[in-house]
């Protein structure tokens, strides 16, 4: 042991350690860059194809740099399907879902974390176990229910359910976050005679911005890419969202690959932007809360 400590404090050991660290860094960087490129390749191919002329698309071996660069593919793709109508529909649904994701899970999570009441833990266990129920089991009766309410063919089935708690996973995440906020703050507020509503809105919410932002971004991404919901509930072209519009675009213009790639790129773009903007909060938001079993 003594020998080891002696060795570790010696000069040569530190140089060796440094060299080892540099080699490790280089190896890891190479590995990550190689993997990263394979992950990015499909994207680049998407962009490249979206800018090609039909003739170049079917060239073999394939070319990477489009020549000529067909920017017009983008305007044509957007004309081929009612892009702005689909965008409007998507934004409408997305907005409500983001609002719901900010309000609903935090509200419920407060009841599960900052108030002590009998039966709370049992109900929380039930909440966790609902995550294990495959959605296919409830899908059909929920459709029938919305049908009886006359909501099929409207945006309501895609919006209203989000306000009922916003899903077990979100509530769970929010609760975990609330648990990290010192209880003393709540106790102090209680001593001052503040109600739970006040504590929730004025103390917990402002302190939970990273978690709320995470849920907001999750909801944005989730409802932007939602496919099954619109597929089941929306009717004709006037109601389609981008995700579902894109699919019908696929059948309509089967092998017009340039347009398909251009449209796919446009629909994906907001996700990329949203993710880059929220990247830090996003990864932190999840890390902060931690997901422990």
């Amino acid at each position: 042991m003594q020998e080891a400590i002696k060795y570790r404090s010696s000069e040569s050991w530190r140089v060796k350690l440094k060299r080892k660290a540099i080699i490790k860094e280089i190896v890891l960087q190479c590995l990550l860059i190689f993997l990263g490129i394979t992950f990015l390749l499909p994207f680049l191919w998407m962009i490249s194809t979206s800018l090609k002329s039909n003739e170049q698309i079917f060239k073999f071996p394939p070319v990477w740099i489009p020549n000529p660069v067909m920017w017009s593919n983008y305007s044509k793709a957007l004309q081929y399907f009612p892009f702005f109508r689909f965008l409007g529909n998507t934004l409408y649904i997305t907005t409500f879902n983001v609002i719901a994701a900010i309000l609903a899970p935090s509200f419920v999570a407060y009841g599960f974390s900052r108030i002590k009441w009998p039966g709370r833990d049992i109900l929380f266990l039930i909440l966790l176990s609902t995550m294990m129920i495959p959605s296919q089991v409830t899908m059909i009766p929920v459709f029938v229910m919305f049908k009886k309410m006359g909501w099929v063919g409207t945006f309501k089935p895609l919006i209203v359910p989000a306000f009922f708690g916003g899903g077990a996973f979100s509530i769970f995440l929010m609760r975990q976050f609330f648990m990290t906020i010192p209880q003393e703050l709540v106790d102090a507020a209680k001593v001052d005679g503040c109600s739970h509503l006040y504590i929730y809105w004025r103390i917990m919410m402002p302190l939970s911005k990273p978690a709320i932002a995470t849920l907001g971004v999750f909801a944005f991404i989730g409802s932007w890419r939602d496919f099954l919901g619109p597929l089941i509930y929306l009717q004709d072209e006037r109601q389609y969202t981008l995700a579902i519009g894109l699919r019908y675009f696929l059948t309509q213009y089967g092998a017009e690959w340039a347009y398909l790639m251009a449209a796919s790129a446009v629909v994906s773009l907001p996700m990329v932007v949203a993710f880059f903007l929220a990247q830090k909060t996003f990864i932190q938001g999840i890390t902060f809360t931690g997901i422990k079993g």
Partner: peptide, 21 residues
């Protein structure tokens, strides 16, 4: 006139949903 080109299953959905054209 509204098209459901490529989305023909929408017709049955609309009829089943009670809000057909």
């Amino acid at each position: 006139t509204v098209t459901i080109f490529g989305a023909y299953e929408k017709l049955l959905a609309a009829i089943a949903g009670g809000t057909p054209p």
